[in-house]
């Protein structure tokens, strides 16, 4: 009997071609899931991730589709169901963007893009997979927020706002669809070695480390392993929760 957390599951990770998304894809695949991911920028990054997943023996698919393109998302979900032979069990809303700009210089487009990719994107992709989850009366949705969305940090305002919105999205949706056996949770990582964290100025990073009980920044793999548990069947009673993974700041 397999001891892997996600044996037989079908997972979709948005923004899965690189960074934290890639690490999550890798970990979910390692836990036995068939993994699909979408990307919107680099075909080469996507191919590399896909090769890595497949070479590990996992069933994996990559789709070039913006999380803001409802038609493309619906087509992607149908394609995943056709390829995997089953609806999506696990959705990780990971797609995001980073931008360092103070409010004084922020343009309307900056704001819209930040909110759209994080929040509207999570909404559209969730709506796309939810039909299958309700039909199955089971599912796991995990939204990737940030410490900047749950604690008062000096970070770009639109980024904080978008990540905080994902917490609200998580809680509202958890209440709305929990009755169908679909749970919705949120993970809020602290500063990591890579990804948007590289934009953190050295002084702020040092300040973070001074207050972090573990005394270091996190890794993608550490976040991904928590993600794997949060979307597993073993995590059956947690719903609407935001799990902060920051080494205790």
């Amino acid at each position: 009997m397999s001891t892997r957390l996600l044996e037989g599951k079908v997972a979709l990770v948005t923004g899965g071609s690189r960074g934290l998304g890639r690490a999550i894809c890798r970990t979910l695949a390692g836990e036995g899931a068939a993994v699909a991911f979408n990307y919107s920028r680099s075909d080469e990054d996507a191919r590399r991730t896909l090769d890595e997943l497949r070479s590990s023996g996992a069933r994996a698919w990559a789709f070039r589709a913006s999380v803001l393109d409802k038609v493309a998302i619906d087509a992607m979900v149908r394609a995943i169901e056709a390829e995997a032979g089953a609806p999506v069990d696990v959705l990780v809303n990971n797609a995001g963007v980073g931008q360092v700009v103070p409010l004084a210089l922020m343009q309307e487009d900056d704001w819209d893009k930040m909110m759209d990719v994080h929040v509207k994107g999570a909404f559209l992709v969730t709506q796309g997979v939810l039909r299958g989850m309700i039909r199955m009366r089971r599912g796991r949705i995990l939204n990737v927020s940030s410490l900047a969305g749950v604690k008062m940090l000096e970070a770009p305002v639109h980024y904080c706002t978008a990540k905080a919105a994902l917490k609200g999205f998580t809680e509202g949706l958890a209440k709305e669809i929990g009755r169908y056996g679909v749970t919705v949770n949120c993970i809020a990582p602290g500063i990591l070695e890579e990804g948007v964290s590289v934009n953190v100025p050295p002084a702020k990073r040092d300040d973070y480390l001074r207050h972090c009980a573990v005394g270091r920044v996190g890794t993608f793999e550490e976040i991904a392993s928590v993600v794997a548990f949060l979307v597993s069947d073993g995590n059956s009673y947690m719903n609407g929760a935001t799990i902060v993974v920051d080494g205790a700041v």
């Binding site: 039909r131 299958g132 309700i134 669809i177 009755r179």
Partner: peptide
């Protein structure tokens, strides 16, 4: 109605 909506949504 909410229940019905989700049911129809899933089985549309």
């Amino acid at each position: 109605l909410h229940e019905v909506i989700h049911d129809v949504f899933a089985r549309q």
